[in-house]
Each structure stands twice: as C-alpha cells, then as structure tokens.
Amino acid sequence: MLKDVTLGQFFPGKSVIHRLDPRTKLLILVGYIVALFLAVSWLSYGVVFVFLAVSIAISGIPLKSFFKGMKPLMFILLFTGILNLFFTQGETVLVQIWTISITLEGVIRAFFMVFRILMLVTGTFLLTYTTSPIALTDGLEALLSPLKKIKLPVHELSMMMCIALRFIPTLVEETDKIMSAQKARGADFESGNLVQRVKALVPILVPLFISAFRRADELATAMECRCYQGGDGRTKMKLLRMHGCDYGSFLVAALLITAVCVLRGFGL
C-alpha cells in the first residue's frame, strides 16, 4: 500500500527534457512558477498551460503518474476551491442560500486558484519525474555555489538533500516490513478512535527511528571509509555542461515569461 507513493519518483527516459541540464530545468521551473503567478487572464493561463502541456508531451511521462501524485493534494485543492467559491465578493449572484452566496466571480476565481495549484504541482512533478535525485542535487549545488562566498555550507546542504531523497524508498520499504511484522503480532492499525490509532503507531515509529539512526551511523562510517571530508577539493565524475537544447529551452522559457508579462501589461 505504501509502495504507491509517487512523490518525487524518477522515471528514467531519453527525452529532451530528461537530457536537459538540471540547472536549466531548475531555472526554467522558477521562471515557470513566476509566469504562473503573473498570469491573470484566461489567455495568459492558456499560454502557461500550453507550455506545460507541450513539456509533458515531450517528456513522454504518462499522465496517469501525475494524477497519482496529485491524490494527497485533493484536500488542499478542495479547500482552496470551496473557500474561493463561497467567499469571493461579486456582482453576478448565481445562487443565494441564507447569507452565503455564490457569485460568478467566485466560480471563476475558484477555478483559477485550483488550476494554478494544479499547474504548479504538475510542473514540479515534471522536474522530479525527469531528473534523477543526484542530478537534481548536483544542479542545486551548482546554482547555489555563489552563496559559498557568504559561508553558506552549500555542498553539505545538497549532500543532505541527496541522502534524504535517496533514503525515502528505503524507509518506505522498511515501514512496510515493520507494519507487516507488528500486524503478524496482532497489531491493529485500522480500527479504534483517533487516540487508539495514534497509539497504534508507536510499534511502528520506534523501530523505524531506531533503524534510521542505525542506517545513518552505518552510512557515515561507509562515507568516512571512502575518505569523504566535505566538498573541498572534491571532483565530479559527471560535469554539468550546457548544450544547445539548454539554450533553446531558456529561449522558450524567456518567451513564455515575456508573453505573460506583455499580456499582463495589456490587462489581459
């Protein structure tokens, strides 16, 4: 059951999007998010949507995986939608129930907000689906490296992130195993009230934490054995290099932002 977690899962592939430099993808994602928040009209939303749709099509990632990853967000989406639907002031009242009224403006606003979150998350998924965690942290480290000047431990941060990402599947598997083992001893996670259910988690969490610490210890020893001593003087096997397609992608992303800005300037 826990194996269905798709958040941050990497789908290996050979598309242009897969081959882009992680730095390019990270920067374009930032640009994409900016464009998304600058968009105010149907037209500008449409432009951003087309950009996203084309990127997904090129990546060749099945749409199903995006929907699957979206499941945990259902509550937030619903909450945002309902809040905007009921609490937007407007002139064209569609339905009036007691003091609560649904206006046309509310419907449009709710639609835009939900759509914005959806597109935001889908864009982020596209990055994590097409970029291996190692490439991603490498890219992040490269982008943040100017901050080393102000003594920010950029390498350590990216190494931590890399390790964290690497261990998510391991811990999920471990949780599954521990759950099975405690179930075999008659533990019941599915019935009872809230307090009982929280209490039922103790037999899972304690072994999980202990094993996480044990793994951390072992990993630290293994890294030390391989003479890891932080980022200083460390060379990379795979150097990040920008290619033609990277510059091309930047151009497209720049066009996207410009288009949205221009549209906004016209009040569209």
């Binding site: 521990i178 083992a181 019941d188 304690v206």
Partner: peptide
Amino acid sequence: FQYPEYQLFEETVYKDIAFGPKN
C-alpha cells in the same frame, strides 16, 4: 520475519513479549 530484532519497540523485554498476547 527475517531479522525480527529490528521490530522490537517496548521499554522492557517483558512488555515487548507481551505485545502479541495483549493484542
């Protein structure tokens, strides 16, 4: 299970062994 020692969680050995019978 394999390596069952990784599933221990209680404060004392007694309590851990009692987990199953209690359930």
